[in-house]
Amino acid sequence: MKRAILLLPLLLTGNAPGATTVSVDLTGLRNKTGLVFVCMTAKPAAFPNGCETDPNRRVASIKAADAGPLILRDVPPGRYAIALLHDENGNKKMDKTLFLPKEGFGFSRDAPVRMAPPKFEAAAFDVTAGKPVRMSMKVRYL
């Protein structure tokens, strides 16, 4: 019985063995309106559009006015990529003009954007068991 009581806090927190934290600091926000969302996935097919289709994704959001780090918790070891959206009008989607984004966006490792969003490998980074990751992501606007 005593052993079960000791295991209960571990089960309630949902921590996987070796899970850690990924912290994302933002740079380049053009204003303090709306929200900033990040979605992290380990599935190349879900990056960057379609992250919501990954049942194991990690997401975080923050008010742009707060502009503190976005924290992704309980991240198991693996290879991940992050897509970011500065949703200035709060409609939870990327607004576009003709096919070009009207709102801010970004990718882990500041993966370059050419004629299309970057591929998973351009933005991918590794998470090691128990070792917190801290990165900076630049918000870009067209």
Rank of each mutant, 00 (worst) to 15 (best):
M1C: 07
R3I: 05
A4R: 09
L6N: 04
L7I: 12
L8E: 06
L11Q: 10
L12R: 03
T13C: 11
N15I: 09
N15E: 15
T21P: 02
V22K: 06
V22R: 07
S23P: 03
T33I: 03
G34L: 10
G34H: 11
L35H: 06
F37N: 07
V38I: 11
M40V: 01
A42G: 05
A42R: 02
P44E: 10
A45R: 11
A45H: 11
F47K: 04
P48S: 10
D54C: 00
R57P: 00
R58I: 08
A60K: 06
S61E: 15
I62L: 09
A65H: 07
D66Q: 15
A67S: 14
A67Q: 13
G68P: 02
G68Q: 13
D74H: 08
P77K: 13
R79V: 11
R79L: 11
Y80R: 03
A81K: 03
A83E: 04
L84G: 09
L85I: 11
E88Q: 14
N89L: 06
K92M: 07
K92E: 10
D95A: 09
K96H: 05
T97C: 08
L98I: 10
F99N: 05
F99Y: 14
L100E: 04
L100F: 14
P101F: 13
G104P: 04
G106E: 10
F107D: 00
P112W: 08
V113E: 06
M115N: 15
M115K: 15
P118N: 05
E121A: 13
E121P: 04
A124M: 01
A124S: 00
F125S: 03
F125V: 06
D126N: 12
T128S: 08
T128E: 14
V133F: 08
M137W: 05
V139D: 13
R140V: 07
